[in-house]
Nucleic acid binder design. Structure first.
Lengths: 129, 129, 129, 129
DNA sequence: GTGGTCTAGACCACC
DNA sequence: GTGGTCTAGACCACA
């Protein structure tokens, strides 16, 4: 998989990395057990500090998306239910509100937002949906 | 209009204020030309630092949502289309991707995300949708 | 509360901080909503790099023990069920195995380990147990 | 004795080997003077790098669990009390605190922790306890 | 070679 | 003042 970051964005670089890997994992682009580029390699490729990549990978480990194996590397973890229903709802709302505020400000209404989301998901995972 | 802020949230207070005013303006709850509470009054009402309100108002002025009239206060600006269609699309995707990455990782699918968004929007603006 | 770290230990410093705050929170020594020392203050107090404290606090936030409020500081979060039953079991076993291996090597048997744990818990939270 | 390692675990492979041999020695499953499989044989059996086994054996020799006899192999050493009562206690607490912090945060109380430990020990060594 | 921890120091956002 | 991100560079543990 190719990871791309834009340095000027308001979204922190490590979050961009996290989001892309999450996406690839959630949509099956990254299969369970698949190895990820090493911290140093990915850092060199994206011209970033290794610590930034390490932070992104660590965040993915704590959310159960990746597993680390000392001295071997990072791998895609088996998908499992980590959070309770309530906690999942809570976390969804936490990220939904800023998103909706921005979307509404841009002039999209509920209907259009739904359409855009469906389009985006199809584009990213044509085989899955 | 009533503005509400929750201090414990991950969303900065000034952003909460900005988002709610934007939303009210976008949905017509705040008519063009309507006056807003003064910085001091709103700060006192919400028990916040006046600087926080001032910052929110300044951000709204910068984005063309409000206008300030020296010595009189802040007013809802005439709604203008600031962004091109393409730019709006780009901005939407920029905030949509992190949101989708989180939602998918939490185990929600496109269908469920749509449902949750509709629920949330109804809760925020029951009369508008 | 007083936090103490020993620099020579095999347990990483940031983990020592995490463990002590977790403990204090779980046993009620740190009440819900209570503020924690700021990253810089605690770092200065313990003669550590602020990043190390920040890492510890960030770990506690992601596990729902603390909440951060931009520009204000860190606070003890309301206790809530974050993980599913299965995930809790999984995480418990993950930390239990190394502990048991060490305890058995030291010559303690199951009975004695139970006794020691009870003693330790009473010592740390006499009012709760 | 049969040694088993799981490569995906958070516990380093060499530690898994160390822990299992320690445990077998502590519980008498491995009698004093009993020979261990050679580094190469065990490495082949477990499909591991011989360095990993060598490291485990070296750690066990350093801790007095095994003895190496040049050209003959490794043997279970006579059990000696290496640590004073106080030192054992100190070492136990050092590993107990992180374990307890995690368990308490996960919502387990002293009673439940005891139960889980007993369950785990029975699973590991059903005949011994 | 891999990941994990820690330091020092910079710059930004928020209150 | 607070937290959040990023860089540069060091040292250690593991395979």
């Amino acid at each position: 998989m190719r990871i791309q970051v834009t340095t000027g964005s308001s979204i922190p670089i490590y979050r961009q990395v996290v989001d892309q890997i999450r996406h690839a994992s959630a949509t099956g682009k990254l299969a369970v057990g698949a190895p990820l580029p090493s911290v140093r390699v990915l850092a060199a490729e994206l011209v970033l500090n290794p610590n930034t990549i390490a932070k992104a990978y660590a965040a993915l480990v704590r959310d159960g998306v990746l597993e680390s194996q000392q001295g071997r590397g990072y791998f895609v973890a088996a998908r499992r239910e980590i959070y309770t229903r309530k906690e999942r709802q809570r976390r969804l709302e936490e990220v939904m509100d800023p998103f909706l505020a921005e979307a509404l400000t841009l002039g999209f209404d509920g209907e259009q937002i739904g359409v855009e989301i469906r389009k985006r998901l199809e584009k990213l995972a044509p085989s899955t949906e």
